[in-house]
């Protein structure tokens, strides 16, 4: 049934192309109708969606549970913030560095991950998520990281004298980077590499027998996943213009994980929905109940999982399959 899913998401017919184009047009259109607060929110949706996308590759495709994706988000954010605040780099030039640093850390975490599966990996990544804010606060590094106070950056402005406000520009910039990331992920998951990744998830031993270089693939996935999530973090730092250790507590990792499961763990478009969920649902919960917004948020999450156990991505796939009157694959 997974093979089936690859086929349907890998086929890129005219309908899909038109759909994508229309969707992008709407997203770009928002830049010119939304006010600056909503533009900021939409920018954050893109940043979170990119972050969830990294998790989709790692957890959704290769089945390695990461409860510490927030750490990569933090590393990307801080890379950008340090370069902008301490060294006066322009925002756009920091992105490759943020990507490289995150990928490097992901690569290093990938090694213990080879030996640890399932919950043990979950704990290891969780430990990473817990330690990152603590490390960021350490006094010895505070010249660099700003310590508990964090770092503040200048607002980015539209280049080449374009008639756009900073908010509009940052939104469009993030949207462009986001598109690149989604294209990268989409390219990666279709075809041979994608099949190998899913083989890792389903049956590690069989994958090895198929000639998949298991170790190399796992480490590479970790690095790519960390890089993409790191870029999400960098985008959010540029938009927020501020980083502090407490924004990157382990709750962020949990939030990204929530984004993953509501979007559908192995659905690439689902990551976008995950990003929107992360950005908007807390506000909606807050509107419903000022007293206990967390309870509403949790209840929405539980209700969501009950209604769509495979997330929005899985739900849409099932609907499409039904629409095409294809029988469900047999569950054995």
């Amino acid at each position: 049934m997974d093979a089936d899913r690859t086929v349907s998401s890998g086929r890129f017919g005219l309908t899909q192309a038109l759909g994508m184009g229309a969707f992008l047009a709407v997203m770009v259109g928002f830049a010119f109708i939304a006010d600056s607060y909503h533009l900021f929110q939409l920018t954050m949706v893109v940043a979170y969606a990119v972050a969830v996308l990294g998790l989709t590759l790692l957890t959704g495709y290769t089945g390695q549970i990461s409860l510490g994706q927030g750490a990569f988000f933090a590393i990307g954010s801080y890379s950008t913030a340090i370069l902008m605040a301490n060294y006066d780099w322009p925002y756009w030039a920091t992105l490759p560095v943020a990507a490289a640093v995150s990928a490097l850390v992901g690569f290093l975490i990938g090694f213990p991950a080879l030996r640890l599966g399932g919950l043990y990996l979950a704990l290891t990544t969780f430990a990473l998520a817990v330690s990152v804010p603590q490390i960021l606060k350490v006094n010895a590094l505070s010249d660099f990281t700003g310590g508990v106070q964090g770092l503040t950056m200048d607002k980015a402005e539209a280049p080449f004298g374009l008639p756009l406000t900073g908010d509009q520009w940052i939104y469009l910039f993030s949207l462009g980077v986001g598109c690149l990331m989604f294209l990268l992920a989409w390219n990666l998951t279709r075809g041979r590499t994608g099949r190998a990744m899913m083989a890792v998830r389903e049956q590690a031993v069989a994958a090895e027998a198929m000639g998949v270089g298991l170790a190399a693939l796992k480490i590479r996935t970790f690095a790519v996943s960390a890089m993409i999530t790191g870029i999400g973090g960098a985008l959010s730092a540029i938009a927020v213009q501020f980083v502090a250790p407490d924004s990157f507590n382990f709750f962020l990792s949990i939030t990204l994980f929530v984004g993953l499961v509501v979007g559908g763990v192995d659905s690439i478009p689902g990551a976008l929905f995950g990003g929107a969920f992360i950005e908007f649902i807390p506000n909606i919960a807050n509107d419903i109940s000022k007293a206990a917004p967390g309870a509403i948020y949790g209840a929405i999450l539980i209700g969501f999982m009950f209604a769509l156990p495979r997330g929005v991505g899985g739900g849409v796939m099932a609907m499409l399959r039904r629409a095409r009157r294809r029988p469900l694959p047999e569950v054995r």
């Binding site: 949990i254 929530v258 509501v262 763990v265 209840a299 999450l301």
Partner: peptide, 9 residues
């Protein structure tokens, strides 16, 4: 992973 979502909720 969906059950994990419920636990988190």
């Amino acid at each position: 992973l969906s059950s994990v979502g419920v636990f988190i909720g």
